[in-house]
Amino acid sequence: MAPDVTAVNSARAPLSRFLRWDVLVGILLVVVFIGGAAGSPEFANIDNLSFALGDLGEIALIALAMTLLVVAAEVDLSVASVLGLSSALVGNLWDAGWAIETIIPLVIVVGAVCGLVNGLLVTRLGLPSLAVTIGTLALYRGLALVVLGDRAIAEFPQTYVNLAVGDVPGTPIPYPVAVFAVLAVITAVLLHATGFGRALFAIGAQVEAAHFAGIRVKRIKLILFVVSGVVAAFAGVVYTLRYGSARADNGSGLELAVIAAVLLGGVDFDGGRGTLGGVIAGVLLIGLLRNLLMLNDVSTEIQSIVTGLLLVISVITPRLVAVARQRRRVPSPVVPTPPTT
């Protein structure tokens, strides 16, 4: 008598396994690389690629923390401002004669506090992170200006500058990129192979079900915001040393490139979906495109337009694909609403 329910199953077309978004981005990356190499002789040499990678360092680092947040259906738009605040503090304190060894941990702590403020506003007051971090985006940048004004502090000791711009001995890999590689592996394991990662996906996909399953949703979100602040502050140190210049407006607008990379990498802005591999491909893709545009003397305005377009396209395309798929399925089998009375 019971309705036949065994057959309710979408036999997934084998092709759609290859059509995963993050795989597509990986393929696109290869295409851009080959195209770039063919079109511009300066592109595919080791020095340029090493520079391109190094130039990506801050975006790549921040994108790791951002991925965790977006998977959990939150976002942190204040990262570039935290980077700026961190840079301003480094400049101010260095100017005041502090040692770099003291400055760095202190700046990291300030980053943690910035993240904590974001996290508390989101988890304790239940405010949407989009709104909260737009507010703190302005707030932290404002603080950076208070700390350093419009001064630019330069002349950092060469040993530290070398750490930011130099390569790991015997390789063409800049130190920040090496740090990124290590953190990326850790993040990938964390996201895809640990209970913490499982919890993040559950929170992002269905926060109520996660709460009912005993997952400490608020605590985890708070941790993510703190991590995001810490990483942004660390990226601020790297940025400052790499350019050899501490300014309050360092890195402004960087959050857009980070979010573009994360979404381009196939992380669903609504949370619950995404892979770190996709994000890394997204970061590299954005980096290569920026590098190519730069090599071809395209103005920064156009570069900004390209970043913006990528952001919009990466949000729109998966939706369009989903809608198209939905249309193809005749009587939508996905949601067999049980008849309830």
């Binding site: 640990t194 209970g195 559950a202 079900a209 005993g214």
Partner: peptide, 29 residues
């Protein structure tokens, strides 16, 4: 649909969600 399950996730992930500690081998699941 809202409280019991993460509808988009697989059967095995949903069942595992309440006992993540017990599924650990070292630090990973």
């Amino acid at each position: 649909r809202q409280q019991g399950l993460v509808m988009d996730q697989s059967i095995e992930r949903n069942i595992g969600l309440t006992g993540l500690k017990g599924l650990r081998r070292g630090p990973v699941i």
